[in-house]
Protein backbone atom coordinates (compact mmCIF):
# COMPACT_ATOMS: atom_id res chain seq x y z
CA UNK A 1 0.00 0.00 0.00
CA UNK A 2 1.28 3.39 -0.97
CA UNK A 3 -0.07 6.77 -0.17
CA UNK A 4 -0.41 9.75 -2.44
CA UNK A 5 -1.57 13.31 -1.97
CA UNK A 6 -3.73 14.47 -4.89
CA UNK A 7 -4.57 18.06 -5.47
CA UNK A 8 -7.65 18.86 -7.52
CA UNK A 9 -8.89 22.06 -9.01
CA UNK A 10 -12.64 21.77 -9.54
CA UNK A 11 -15.66 23.87 -10.44
CA UNK A 12 -17.05 25.55 -7.35
CA UNK A 13 -20.59 24.29 -7.84
CA UNK A 14 -23.07 22.23 -5.89
CA UNK A 15 -22.65 18.50 -6.08
CA UNK A 16 -18.94 18.49 -6.94
CA UNK A 17 -17.86 17.03 -3.62
CA UNK A 18 -20.48 14.29 -3.80
CA UNK A 19 -19.39 13.41 -7.35
CA UNK A 20 -15.82 13.04 -6.20
CA UNK A 21 -16.52 11.17 -2.98
CA UNK A 22 -19.07 9.01 -4.85
CA UNK A 23 -16.42 8.03 -7.38
CA UNK A 24 -14.10 6.93 -4.55
CA UNK A 25 -16.75 4.88 -2.78
CA UNK A 26 -18.18 3.10 -5.85
CA UNK A 27 -14.79 2.14 -7.22
CA UNK A 28 -13.60 1.04 -3.79
CA UNK A 29 -10.76 3.55 -3.44
CA UNK A 30 -9.57 4.49 0.04
CA UNK A 31 -9.69 8.11 1.08
CA UNK A 32 -7.57 8.85 4.14
CA UNK A 33 -8.47 12.50 4.21
CA UNK A 34 -10.14 15.13 2.08
CA UNK A 35 -10.12 18.89 2.44
CA UNK A 36 -11.79 21.47 0.27
CA UNK A 37 -11.90 25.23 0.06
CA UNK A 38 -12.52 27.95 -2.47
CA UNK A 39 -9.49 29.34 -4.34
CA UNK A 40 -8.54 32.95 -5.04
CA UNK A 41 -10.84 32.65 -8.03
CA UNK A 42 -14.32 31.98 -6.59
CA UNK A 43 -15.26 29.88 -9.63
CA UNK A 44 -12.94 27.12 -8.42
CA UNK A 45 -12.45 24.99 -5.36
CA UNK A 46 -9.18 23.34 -4.45
CA UNK A 47 -9.47 19.87 -2.97
CA UNK A 48 -6.67 17.89 -1.38
CA UNK A 49 -7.18 14.15 -1.11
CA UNK A 50 -4.87 11.70 0.60
CA UNK A 51 -5.53 8.25 -0.81
CA UNK A 52 -3.91 4.88 -0.35
CA UNK A 53 -3.69 1.82 -2.56
CA UNK A 54 -1.23 -0.03 -4.75
CA UNK A 55 0.34 1.76 -7.71
CA UNK A 56 -2.29 0.64 -10.22
CA UNK A 57 -5.11 1.88 -7.99
CA UNK A 58 -3.39 5.21 -7.41
CA UNK A 59 -2.91 5.54 -11.17
CA UNK A 60 -6.59 4.76 -11.75
CA UNK A 61 -7.64 7.29 -9.11
CA UNK A 62 -5.77 10.00 -10.96
CA UNK A 63 -7.31 9.05 -14.33
CA UNK A 64 -10.86 8.47 -13.14
CA UNK A 65 -10.93 11.73 -11.17
CA UNK A 66 -9.54 13.62 -14.13
CA UNK A 67 -12.42 12.28 -16.25
CA UNK A 68 -15.06 13.94 -14.12
CA UNK A 69 -16.50 16.82 -16.07
CA UNK A 70 -16.17 19.26 -13.15
CA UNK A 71 -12.48 18.57 -12.60
CA UNK A 72 -10.19 21.08 -14.24
CA UNK A 73 -6.92 19.60 -13.09
CA UNK A 74 -5.51 16.89 -10.85
CA UNK A 75 -1.91 16.54 -9.81
CA UNK A 76 0.05 14.49 -7.37
CA UNK A 77 1.82 16.53 -4.73
CA UNK A 78 5.27 15.02 -4.66
CA UNK A 79 6.40 14.93 -1.00
CA UNK A 80 9.92 16.05 -1.91
CA UNK A 81 8.65 19.09 -3.70
CA UNK A 82 5.56 20.15 -1.80
CA UNK A 83 4.46 21.64 1.47
CA UNK A 84 1.82 19.75 3.44
CA UNK A 85 -0.04 21.11 6.42
CA UNK A 86 -2.69 19.80 8.73
CA UNK A 87 -4.41 21.42 11.67
CA UNK A 88 -5.24 19.34 14.72
CA UNK A 89 -7.27 20.27 17.79
CA UNK A 90 -6.81 18.05 20.82
CA UNK A 91 -8.95 18.27 23.94
CA UNK A 92 -7.04 16.67 26.80
CA UNK A 93 -8.56 15.82 30.14
CA UNK A 94 -6.01 17.10 32.62
CA UNK A 95 -6.27 18.51 36.13
CA UNK A 96 -4.65 21.77 37.03
CA UNK A 97 -1.74 20.23 38.93
CA UNK A 98 -0.73 18.06 35.97
CA UNK A 99 -0.83 20.75 33.30
CA UNK A 100 2.82 21.80 33.46
CA UNK A 101 4.47 18.94 31.53
CA UNK A 102 1.78 19.16 28.88
CA UNK A 103 2.40 22.85 28.40
CA UNK A 104 6.12 22.20 28.09
CA UNK A 105 5.50 19.53 25.49
CA UNK A 106 3.18 21.84 23.53
CA UNK A 107 5.83 24.48 23.64
CA UNK A 108 8.41 22.21 22.07
CA UNK A 109 6.02 21.49 19.24
CA UNK A 110 4.99 25.14 18.94
CA UNK A 111 1.44 24.16 19.62
CA UNK A 112 -0.98 26.71 21.04
CA UNK A 113 -3.29 26.33 23.96
CA UNK A 114 -6.56 27.73 22.69
CA UNK A 115 -8.85 26.85 25.57
CA UNK A 116 -8.31 26.16 29.23
CA UNK A 117 -10.92 24.69 31.55
CA UNK A 118 -10.68 23.45 35.13
CA UNK A 119 -10.15 19.88 33.96
CA UNK A 120 -9.20 20.23 30.33
CA UNK A 121 -7.11 21.97 27.70
CA UNK A 122 -7.53 22.35 23.98
CA UNK A 123 -4.22 22.26 22.12
CA UNK A 124 -3.99 23.54 18.57
CA UNK A 125 -1.20 22.04 16.53
CA UNK A 126 -0.26 22.87 12.97
CA UNK A 127 2.19 20.89 10.93
CA UNK A 128 2.74 18.12 8.50
CA UNK A 129 1.08 14.82 9.32
CA UNK A 130 4.22 13.22 10.73
CA UNK A 131 4.67 16.04 13.23
CA UNK A 132 1.09 15.59 14.36
CA UNK A 133 1.55 11.84 14.65
CA UNK A 134 4.69 12.38 16.71
CA UNK A 135 2.92 14.75 19.05
CA UNK A 136 -0.04 12.41 19.50
CA UNK A 137 2.39 9.63 20.25
CA UNK A 138 3.84 11.69 23.11
CA UNK A 139 0.35 12.30 24.52
CA UNK A 140 -0.12 8.60 25.15
CA UNK A 141 -0.03 8.99 28.91
CA UNK A 142 -2.87 11.51 28.83
CA UNK A 143 -6.57 11.08 28.29
CA UNK A 144 -7.57 12.57 24.96
CA UNK A 145 -11.23 13.54 25.33
CA UNK A 146 -11.76 14.70 21.77
CA UNK A 147 -9.61 15.00 18.69
CA UNK A 148 -10.34 16.85 15.45
CA UNK A 149 -8.04 16.85 12.43
CA UNK A 150 -8.63 18.83 9.27
CA UNK A 151 -6.84 16.42 6.97
CA UNK A 152 -3.91 17.37 4.84
CA UNK A 153 -3.85 20.32 2.54
CA UNK A 154 -0.83 21.33 0.54
CA UNK A 155 0.80 23.12 -2.34
CA UNK A 156 3.70 22.24 -4.56
CA UNK A 157 6.75 24.48 -4.40
CA UNK A 158 7.56 27.02 -7.12
CA UNK A 159 5.60 28.09 -10.17
CA UNK A 160 6.32 25.17 -12.48
CA UNK A 161 3.02 23.36 -12.41
CA UNK A 162 0.64 26.18 -11.54
CA UNK A 163 -2.66 26.09 -13.43
CA UNK A 164 -3.23 29.72 -14.29
CA UNK A 165 -6.91 30.49 -14.35
CA UNK A 166 -8.22 32.55 -17.23
Amino acid sequence: MNKKVFQLLVENSSGVLSRISGLFSRRGYNIESITAGVTADPRYTRITIVASGDDEILDQIEKQVEKLVDVRNIKVLDPADSVYRELCLIKVEVSEDKREPLLALSNIFRANIVDVGPESLIIELLGNPSKIEAFLELLRGYTIAELARTGVTGLSRGLNDVVWLD
Partner: peptide
Protein backbone atom coordinates in the same frame (compact mmCIF):
# COMPACT_ATOMS: atom_id res chain seq x y z
CA UNK B 1 -10.25 7.93 -26.16
CA UNK B 2 -10.61 7.32 -22.42
CA UNK B 3 -7.24 7.57 -20.65
CA UNK B 4 -8.65 5.71 -17.64
CA UNK B 5 -9.22 2.57 -19.74
CA UNK B 6 -5.56 2.37 -20.64
CA UNK B 7 -3.75 0.39 -18.02
CA UNK B 8 -6.95 -0.40 -16.10
Amino acid sequence: VDPAEIGK
